[in-house]
């Protein structure tokens, strides 16, 4: 019986994976051309930025927090990258580090406020969300198109995988982030402290864990991921725009939750979040293949799925509670 309770915790992850496989199978049967390696790979190509965002968000949510600023940070990063490249004419070697530091600094600040002033992550990152979006408009209200050899290269390069299949550089970046995060979450002190923090902050403190450092690092990492996702998004769109990634923080949260991370913190897997992103991706793909459906059906499908998953989580939490 006790063995079961462990499996319960992994149930959302298992459910997510099975769901993905079932959806892929349905798609393959319904639509000609769906069952191809490239369709699968395109899920990564089109969602690389979302994967990166979800990785950062996973840590935040496992720790029991939330980060609403990530969508706006994408916009701000894209604007900073675009304006530094096009208006200031700086080399990418300068543009990239500056862009990456944008989200990192915002995340650091948010983490600092959340911990030392004991503020709700929701409200702090909500403020961060408005701030970052506002700053993007400050740079320019217009969209800035980018044309530079470096960005063109990053956007256009196809890494062949044989059989005419390919992935983009962004996918490689995303996968490196994922592997790094999986390793961190399972095999480093920081990673385990994140879980402990999500289990009980009070306990973590009394067990002598570095709560302050861990918490601030979590939001810093999420901010960094948001900036990196911002760059990848910029490669994808080849423009900076203050309206980019509007509401994407919510897509990210949805993907993480569908990926099996408990919103209350303490349980979840980075790999699950990746599958969560792929599921949102496959819904879009199916709707494209369907041809006649409006893109809004994606939202409807994700909404239904989310409902299903939060109920599933609730059931699991109730079942695993002792007594």
């Amino acid at each position: 019986m006790k063995k079961l309770s462990l499996d319960y915790k992994q149930l959302p992850l298992i459910a997510t994976m099975s769901l993905f496989i079932v959806m892929f199978a349905i798609g393959s049967m319904r639509y000609t051309g769906f069952l191809s390696t490239q369709v699968f790979l395109n899920l990564f190509v089109d969602n690389a930025f979302l994967i990166i965002l979800a990785v950062g968000m996973t840590f935040v949510i496992i720790s029991g927090g939330i980060d609403l600023s990530v969508g706006s940070v994408i916009a701000l990063t894209s604007m900073v990258a675009a304006s530094l490249t096009m208006n200031a004419g700086l080399s990418p070697w300068i543009v990239i580090p500056i862009s990456l530091s944008v989200g990192t600094i915002i995340g650091l600040g948010q983490g600092y406020l959340i911990h030392y002033y004991n503020l709700q992550p929701f409200i702090v990152t909500l403020a961060g969300m408005f701030l970052a979006r506002g700053l993007s408009y400050l740079i320019s209200v217009e969209s800035i198109a980018i044309s530079s050899p470096f960005f063109d290269y990053m956007a256009g390069t196809r890494i062949p995988l044989g059989g005419g299949n390919f992935i983009s550089i962004s996918v490689v970046i995303a996968l490196i982030v994922v592997l790094f995060a999986v390793y961190v979450s399972l095999f480093t002190k920081f990673g385990r402290n994140v879980y402990a923090l999500g289990g009980s902050e009070q306990s973590a403190l009394l067990m002598g864990l570095p709560v302050a450092r861990t918490k601030i690092l979590i939001y810093t990492f999420s901010g960094f991921c948001a900036s990196l996702a911002g760059l990848v998004f910029t490669f994808y769109m080849l423009s900076g725009y203050a309206l980019h990634a509007n509401g994407m923080e919510l897509d990210t949260i949805a993907a993480v939750v569908i990926g099996g991370t408990l919103l209350t913190g303490g349980a979840g897997y980075v790999a699950g979040s990746v599958v969560g992103v792929l599921i949102t991706g496959i819904i879009q793909t199916m709707i494209v293949f369907e041809g006649t459906l409006s893109a809004w059906w994606t939202k409807i499908a994700i909404g239904v799925l989310l409902f299903f998953f939060i109920v599933l989580q609730r059931v699991i939490v109730l079942r695993t509670k002792p007594k």
Binding site: Y195, G199, S200, M207, G266, A267
Partner: peptide, 8 residues
């Protein structure tokens, strides 16, 4: 109140 993390 046992101060451990039951999720670990």
């Amino acid at each position: 109140e046992v101060n451990l993390c039951t999720n670990l």
